[in-house]
Amino acid sequence: MKPFDSLRKLFGAIGGGENRHGADNGMISCDEAKTRLFEFLDGELPEISHAEVERHVEVCKACYPRFQFERHFLDALQAAEERGTASPELRDRILKVLAEEGANGSS
């Protein structure tokens, strides 16, 4: 291994280029990180895999914006839904029927 290989790899990762070197520098490739991206953001990855993606994104200039992009998208979705509520009339109607069903017993 040439002395500057590891440095080049490091700069490849943080310098904006795609990191294709994969496992030999202990870092997953951009492709792998992106493949797991949604599962990562959804909290669905096993611990080790999650940590690998996290580590990649922290230092990869190419992937970081994509992750932020997806995160902003998902945050916007979540924020949009917060308010829909069942009307008090609907709630009362349901509770009333439940009370009647409870009082009348099983059919």
């Binding site: 992106k34 991206l37 599962e39 914006p65 992009f69 997806e70 995160r71 902003h72 998208f73 949009a80």
Partner: peptide
């Protein structure tokens, strides 16, 4: 589907981190 991101690719020059999502009304 996770890997490819056509919308990200289309907007990354003007808005690399997708801030526009926050401007869209609920």
């Amino acid at each position: 589907l996770s890997r490819e991101a056509p919308v990200f690719a289309a907007s990354k020059d003007s808005d690399p981190e997708g801030d526009f999502f926050n401007s869209i009304v609920d």
